[in-house]
Amino acid sequence: MLLHAVDVGDGPRTVVLLHGMMGSADSWWRMMPVLAAQGFRVLAIDLPGHGLSPRDPRLTIEQAASSVVETVRSLAPGRPLAAVGHSYGASVLAQAAPLLRPEPGIYVDAALVLPGGSDRDDLIERYARDREARQSPENLRASRPFYSEKDAEIEALAARRFDPTTMASVSCGRDHMWLPDPGSIIVRADPSDWVTAADVARFAANGIDVRSIPGAAHTVWYSHFGEFTASLPELFGRRARAQRAG
């Protein structure tokens, strides 16, 4: 299943961006032009059931990852890749990583654990309530005062386009846990409601670089954009490093 993608920049190396649950490709609106200015081509993808991508009431995490791989290979065949996934998008990235082989793979505020066995109807109802609550930009800014007006408008539109049935299906199967390859990067809020001290120890024991941003929200780049970009010189300091090397 090919997914909708926002395609920005024309550099020789591609960065794939995967949003979290109830987000969209446009969730990365502030980051995409900065990455393009660093010399990357940027592919921000709407995951299944989100944005302008297809819906699938029987979706699994494996199928979501397969769709990401198919889309990336269609749009950027043979190009070297880096990839960033946030929350649920980080789980999709972890599932897709053995085929995408991103260098680096960057996982934002995600424990990379997906509990299964949920009741489909209950989860659909819960997601529908969350979707309704997030459709008002004013309500979003009240609950997330670090959002700009544009942030709130983009996330409210993403909520309106979100399909609860597709997303609920992902959590109705078996449990999943991923451990990325050594050299991968975790960027987490500190404290984090999602990445615990035990998660940090598990990642660090496997040679994964855990970078924490004090006081950040779960959507780290919305609340602490400067700190987030500074934490990833692999992406946001590329030209500066090339100039130093030259």
Rank of each mutant, 00 (worst) to 15 (best):
62 E>W: 11
1 M>Q: 02
139 N>Y: 06
67 S>C: 09
162 F>S: 14
87 S>R: 08
65 A>E: 02
127 Y>A: 04
92 V>S: 11
242 A>Y: 00
190 D>E: 14
147 Y>V: 10
176 H>R: 15
209 D>C: 00
238 R>F: 05
170 V>Y: 10
65 A>I: 00
61 I>Q: 11
107 Y>T: 08
61 I>K: 07
242 A>D: 02
49 G>A: 12
12 P>M: 09
139 N>E: 14
138 E>C: 06
42 V>H: 03
18 L>P: 03
91 S>T: 10
242 A>W: 03
78 G>N: 10
185 I>Q: 02
101 R>T: 10
41 R>V: 03
78 G>A: 12
14 T>A: 06
138 E>I: 11
55 R>S: 04
232 L>M: 05
30 R>T: 08
34 V>Q: 15
11 G>C: 07
147 Y>F: 15
178 W>K: 10
107 Y>G: 09
203 F>P: 06
111 A>T: 01
124 I>Y: 09
24 S>P: 05
78 G>E: 05
145 P>Y: 12
212 S>D: 05
107 Y>L: 07
90 A>G: 15
232 L>C: 09
115 P>C: 09
159 A>N: 08
75 L>E: 00
121 D>N: 05
241 R>I: 04
146 F>V: 10
109 D>P: 07
60 T>G: 08
137 P>D: 12
2 L>D: 04
212 S>M: 13
218 H>W: 13
